[in-house]
Nucleic acid binder design. Structure first.
Lengths: 192, 192
DNA sequence: CTAACAACTGTTAGTCGCTAACACCTGGAG
DNA sequence: CTCCAGGTGTTAGCGACTAACAGTTGTTAG
């Protein structure tokens, strides 16, 4: 059985996160104090930091990265790296239920609206980049390391622009379509 | 005449920055206190914040952005956007005196080595991206806005990877060459 | 040259994110 | 039931950063 202790911990974590996000949306990220979040969740600020290493951490979420990396790996070897990443991303997005997309949108808007959060988010893209580069390496006829980094970085920045546009329009357009269009723009270039 | 007041201000600013960078290199960024920097420069911490809005600001430097943007604008219209950016960057880098490149390298290493600084740096790339996108727009047969953003973002992330590699090897390889190689990797992709 | 103004600066006190030390309480194993 | 590990609150403190006030110094008008 899952001990009472464990259940309590999970519950507390969820409660803190929930109150935090609610406060962030209500009165803004900067204007919300860790003390306030803790009070709203019925704990002390020390407990907050025991569950989340920092104030930003409540908002962050890298759960998708490994999933996408795996999808890239399993794309047919006949696809060039950028196409593989593009199809992996678009496919994952199309498979995502609307409810989940909605929470992704909410988080994206929060992050994009707060400079401090944006900085953190983009910084964490570095890890994602390494992951994608590694995924590319595991496929057939992979380019050398430096080129892999370039491609992974380009793919991520392209995804970022798509999400940017998506969030800026409150999710009006389909994100998977935007991703496709963004990658198309990237591939449309022919040196001349 | 340049008033004594003005000269003093410029001097103080330079002194603060110099001592700050020296301390950062000597004992690390995080380990250096604003109070220490201020003391080393012979001022109070309040004066430090009157000259630099934050501790990171001492390290940041966006002086190159407008120069590069102008170079992009003046590339021949026959070049596609990515090629124009690539040539503008490589050209500017090749024209840069070694002494300046050395300071760029020093700053790059400092920033790349400190997560907090990296985050800020990448965040400031957003501004640079807009600038590049605008520069592309001012050239002949410019793609639509969304596509411009994608291209500018890809170019910047490519530059970032090149600088990353450059700094990781202590500037062993020529940065302009690395930039060329990185862009070549980006253009080498052919959807298939 | 001096008086008055404006700009520059230091001091102090405070907020907020975050950490460390210690004491207290409570769930779980024997 | 007892004992212990793990979770929690309290307090105290550091460092980045800000606001308010007072003192000093360059500038400028008379």
């Amino acid at each position: 059985m899952t001990g009472l202790r464990e259940r309590k911990k999970a519950e507390t974590r969820r409660r803190i996160q929930q109150h935090a996000l609610h406060l962030f949306r209500t009165k803004g990220y900067e204007a919300t104090t860790v003390e306030e979040i803790a009070a709203a969740a019925g704990v002390s600020h020390m407990t907050f930091f025991r569950y989340f290493p920092s104030k930003h951490a409540v908002v962050e979420n890298d759960d998708y990265d490994p999933v996408i990396a795996e999808l890239i790996r399993s794309r047919p070897a006949s696809e060039d790296p950028l196409t593989a990443i593009r199809r992996a991303l678009a496919g994952a997005l199309r498979a995502m239920p609307d409810a989940e997309l909605a929470t992704v949108l909410a988080r994206a808007r929060l992050i994009l609206g707060e400079p401090a959060l944006r900085a953190r988010q983009i910084e964490s893209q570095r890890t994602t980049r390494e992951l994608f580069a590694a995924a590319i390496a595991d496929r057939g006829d992979a380019p050398p390391a430096f080129e892999r980094q370039v491609l992974a970085a380009a793919a991520l920045s392209t995804l970022a622009v798509a999400i940017d546009e998506w969030a800026a329009h409150d999710g009006a357009e389909n994100l998977a379509d935007l991703v496709d269009r963004a990658f198309a723009a990237l591939s449309a270039v022919r040196p001349g």
